[in-house]
Computed example of a mutant assay.
Amino acid sequence: MLSKLNKLFGLIGLTSLSTISCAQQNQEDVWQNVYDTRTQYYEKNIGQLPNDILKIVHMAGVWPGGGLYVIPADKIGKNIFVYSTFGFTNSDMPAQATVSDVKVEKDHLGRTTSSSATLKSKSPTSTPSGAAGYGYELILMTREKNEEWPLWFLQWVAQAELLNDAGILARVEKYNGLTIEAIQVGENANDKINVLITKAQKPLPLSTQLPNGKMEFLVATVITDEEMKWSMTNGRNELLNKLIKSGVGQISDRNRSSVITN
């Protein structure tokens, strides 16, 4: 599903600077400035970024400078790991392309050996005024290190946003949160989670200003079936309040008990 690549340091690659126009160079400079500013914010408020960013193979042409990180979040708390998108707020976002006819081949261990897709141009979706790219990065926090299921979820989010223009930030702001039911997070079709997506709450890092606009932090929290049903009647914001008051907060634990009491 995912493959490790070296961390990107820009969009120029091996192209000679002498072949790049002033306008192109300015775009590269802006892109890099956004990337560096976001990196500094993450490392100040979450933790040191790993050397490797995880790339979603079949979306390389859609999200060339973006990927996923698994971050030891020592700035948030002990034994907490943040699984995060990194690049929804890039200066070349929203995406100007999409893919179809995705084909992924795997070996007997379930590892991706090859992939292919048809890249097509599309008009960038509308985003909130003053937003950096899509206006947000999304994180999921657990006490589990190097698990695959959070990465399955983040891949689902990336495809929903970049390929299908889900408008997750706008939905969170309109409905005071967003609940999503039964997202598959493993090879087994029955391996599913429910999530509540809300804006980050203190003491987590909140919104910040990047060179290209505002970046919100959205947090996905795994919730139980009972909590999902309760939120449909009582509201997503009220569920978030219950999670915070119970001590669960915005940390995901797939095995915890429900915070809903009769």
Rank of each mutant, 00 (worst) to 15 (best):
V57I: 02
K103E: 05
V195N: 03
G133W: 03
V62E: 08
K199Y: 04
V104F: 08
Y35N: 08
D29C: 11
L14R: 15
R254F: 04
K44C: 03
S123M: 12
A73P: 11
R254V: 15
K145R: 12
W230Y: 03
T125K: 11
V259D: 07
E105M: 06
G13S: 07
A73C: 05
P150R: 00
L49N: 10
S207G: 02
D253N: 15
D191Q: 15
V219T: 09
Y41L: 02
T233N: 14
K174E: 08
V102Y: 09
G167V: 13
T233A: 12
F88A: 01
G61F: 05
V82P: 00
P211L: 02
N45Y: 04
Q184T: 10
G249R: 10
V30S: 00
P50T: 14
S115H: 14
M232S: 08
K106W: 00
G133E: 01
W230P: 03
I168H: 02
N262V: 09
V185M: 04
L54T: 06
L138P: 07
G77F: 05
Q184A: 12
T39N: 12
G135I: 03
L204W: 05
I20A: 01
G65R: 10
S3D: 03
G213N: 09
N237V: 10
E161F: 01
V104M: 12
F9P: 00
S114L: 08
W63Q: 05
Y175S: 09
L163G: 05
F153Y: 10
R256M: 12
S252K: 06
N176D: 15
P72F: 09
R236A: 03
N194K: 05
N241A: 15
E226I: 13
K55Q: 08
S123Y: 00
K245I: 06
N188A: 13
I168K: 01
K122V: 02
A189D: 11
I46V: 15
A117C: 07
E147Y: 09
L8C: 11
I56S: 02
F217V: 07
K4M: 12
I168M: 09
K4W: 12
N188W: 01
L17R: 13
N188D: 15
D101N: 14
T39A: 12
D36L: 11
K78S: 12
G186Y: 10
T113M: 09
N237K: 15
Y83S: 04
Q25M: 14
L119S: 09
P50M: 11
N45P: 04
D253C: 06
L138I: 15
V195K: 01
K174Y: 04
N194F: 00
K174S: 07
I180A: 11
A189Q: 13
T112R: 01
V99M: 04
L54N: 09
P94T: 07
S115P: 00
N237L: 11
E105F: 02
A166C: 00
G135M: 02
A182E: 11
L206E: 08
